[in-house]
Amino acid sequence: MPADRMPLLDVRNLCVSVPANGGMIRLVENVSFCVDEAEIVGLVGESGSGKSVTAMALMGLIDSPGVQVRGSARFRGQELVGMAPRALRALRGRDIAMIFQDPMTAFTPVYTIGWQIDEQIRAHERLSRRAARARTVQLLAEMGVPDPARTAQRYPHQLSGGLRQRAMIAMALSCNPTLLIADEPTTALDVTVQAQILELLRGLRHSHGSSVLLITHDMGVVAQTCARTLVLYSGRMAESGPTSTLFARPAHPYTAALLDSIPPLDGPRPPRLPAIAGLPPTPRERPAGCAFGPRCAHVHATCLPAPPALASIGPGQQAACVLPAEGTPLPPRATAQATRP
């Protein structure tokens, strides 16, 4: 990251802890990353990896009692961690917007789609009802919703999953946010609809100049959408880097194993999938050393005492693994060459 350019979002050593059994449990530990203007960054991890918690913490949306958010998250130079609720609220929905996994449950069931989008516009801008609705209809049209004026008058349950997610994105974009946080935006959708929504998200950079922080568990979605990727494992950063590098030469054994365990749709079919044995640890029983250690094929004595620090591997690539420093980096992935025509 050149020093003269300030990233849109700069997260440094973000920690989120919740109280449990008299102590504090760290759900997210020292997560750092940047999002540049008009960039799509992927935040990947399995369930419990802390990827959604990270996003919720950035938005100030975690309200479980006793939760502690530490570290720093600067949005255009403004510190989000510890920001006054009122100031954060003004930012939320206007400068940073969020879309969620299940568009069925993410809309309030008793109001029309249009009403809910109008509400967000009018919460941040002094606009008449009529003007807000006009913008709502225009946004729905931009998101490819057929017959937007009538769709605006419909209730969430009356729309299909794909249309609901388009409406959700329209709502998120209603105040022209510079950053859109999308939490598993296509997980609840069918593949053909997922492809449409991903296309839409990719286009936002050009049409709205928005950056997107895309949270997902699907490596396929990341590969097709994100310029840079951040891999989380058990609340810690495993690896980050440009998506193409990360997929071709993963530096962390977890990233490599995760990519290998995806059944291939093209090319030869392996008789068995190279699955990762065991389970990710829960935050409570996370080991003192590398969290992936117990499941790692390359684990050895240096991994055990403390979590390996994030080290620079190559241009823009970082990994929390001792292997590269010890001079035994992982080989490039053999299957990475299997591109599609």
């Binding site: 053909t192 997922q194 449409q196 396929g220 590969a223 097709q224 071709a248 749709l265 591109t339």
Partner: peptide, 21 residues
């Protein structure tokens, strides 16, 4: 099959279906 996102960088889907089922 075309719509399934492959974990391969740079492979954008070849064909997009319009609309919902």
């Amino acid at each position: 099959t075309a719509a399934v996102p492959r974990p391969v960088v740079g492979a954008a889907p070849a064909m997009l279906l319009r609309g919902d089922v």
